[in-house]
Design a binder for these strands. Structure first.
Length: 409
DNA sequence: TCTGGGGTCCTAGGACCC
DNA sequence: TCTGGGGTCCTAGGACCC
């Protein structure tokens, strides 16, 4: 009997993805600190002499955050998630470019299809990163996946002109940590024996799943590195972090992770939200809020239709001027993809919220999704157990969309 | 002038049913 | 009069990730 082959899981992460895509079309910016974010204004302007002029961080006013920045900008202390206004204090002369998701999605498709030419078992993890299972790739076991990883990097560069960082490890958890170790343009191999020397010295927050809150709580107990965490008593971790999370922290610190590479999964929810340019009040700005609310519902309905889903639970999200958020949701008797039905359900949710404070964000969410195929499948049945036709399963009506925002509580 | 928009997963209490 | 579990659904909030 032969032993099962060692799992070889790659994590591939594009280097400063949005910023690198922008540098492809604005090569004159190469080497400069460049930041992506802050909305859709501040487009570069082509001047009469044929050169471009770019907005600088110091010119910006608004509520945007940094989505990505070049390594030159990061060296100045600018990081993703940071408010643009705050970043402007650190790097006022850095170039600011608007976000162009269509362009990034185009390059995302390009690099992912290049990867799939090399290896078929690919898990999508958003626009700029993926996991790849190399375990059964011919030849991969011979060199622990090194040549396969190099092949992936070469394929991505050939297809896009962009660099990425790849790590190959026994599982997703370690591969994810590993791809950051040699960025940019990295190629990292991690074997089970590398845990103590290469993983344990790292900060605990390098583990995917240990965020700001857990990091702070761990630090309060004197746990700073992954090694500190590995040395902690698992019973103690469970007592302080809960049965599930505490046990997971222990496993993660020891580099154990059996999650498979998943090549497809159905979405659980689809949503639309927007942050207003200025905070709005439910009564004073009622007309504007009503318009935005309806627009979000119309967009959400279009998203559902385009992707082929119907939803049975509609929810709203509000964020107030003090940044506190609340959610409300409502389950319907039948699935819907109809804008008016969504708008009415979302309006019911809104009635359950105290609207004294001003709002900075409004969102609408569809969950409990079913594919249209599921809804028409023979096994789809009505309350009496009889097969139901699609038009009977979808709650749809022609109520007017613009019925205004409900009165504040 | 702090803090976008799109997601996933987990917890926890109450309703309701067996 | 007091006292069971288990299972599922609904709802709200929060941590976390890209």
């Amino acid at each position: 009997m032969t032993a099962a082959p060692q799992r070889l899981i790659a994590h591939l992460d594009m280097d400063a993805f949005y910023a690198s895509v922008e540098l492809l079309r604005y090569p004159d910016l190469r080497g400069a600190p460049v930041v992506i974010g802050g909305g859709r204004r501040h487009q570069p302007v082509l001047r009469a002499d044929g050169r471009r002029s770019y907005a600088r961080l110091r010119d910006y006013a608004g509520r945007g955050v940094i989505t990505t920045s070049t390594y030159e900008a990061r060296a100045l202390g600018v990081h993703s998630g940071m408010g643009v206004m705050k970043a402007a204090q650190l790097a006022p002369d850095a170039v600011l470019l608007p976000i162009d998701f269509d362009e990034y999605r185009k390059y995302s498709r390009l690099f992912k299809s290049a990867v799939r030419e090399v290896a078929a078992l690919v898990e999508d993890r958003g626009i700029d990163e993926i996991y790849i299972d190399l375990t059964d790739l011919p030849g991969a076991q011979r060199d622990a996946g090194r040549s396969a990883a190099q092949q992936l990097k070469d394929a991505v560069r050939a297809a896009t002109g962009l660099s990425c960082s790849v790590a190959v490890a026994p599982n997703k958890l370690l591969a994810k940590i590993g791809s950051e170790l040699d960025k940019p343009d990295g190629l990292t191999l991690l074997a089970p024996g590398d845990l103590q020397a290469r993983i344990w010295p790292l900060a605990a927050k390098k583990v995917n799943g240990i965020g700001p809150k857990a990091t702070e709580k761990l630090a309060a107990f004197g746990i700073h590195t992954i090694g500190d965490l590995a040395a902690a008593d698992p019973q103690w971790l469970v007592a302080h972090f809960g049965r599930h999370y505490g046990a997971w922290l222990h496993e993660a610190a020891h580099g154990r992770d059996a999650r498979p590479v998943v090549t497809f999964s159905e979405p659980k929810s689809i949503s639309r939200e927007t942050t207003f340019e200025r905070d709005l009040h439910a009564m004073r700005d009622r007309a504007e809020l009503g318009r935005i609310f309806t627009e979000l519902c119309v967009q959400l309905a279009a998203d559902l239709a385009r992707k082929g889903y119907a939803s049975r639970t509609i929810g709203i999200k509000l964020r107030f001027d003090d940044f506190k958020a609340v959610t409300r949701d409502l389950s319907l008797p039948a699935h819907t993809m109809d804008a008016a039905t969504i708008r009415r359900a979302a309006g019911e949710c809104l009635k359950r919220v105290d609207l004294t404070r001003r709002l900075r964000l409004l969102g609408v969410r569809a969950s409990a999704l079913a594919t249209l195929a599921e809804l028409v499948a023979p096994r789809a049945t009505d309350a009496a157990g009889r097969p139901a036709a699609l038009h009977e399963r979808l709650a749809s009506d022609n109520l007017p969309l613009f019925d205004g925002a409900p009165p504040p509580a």
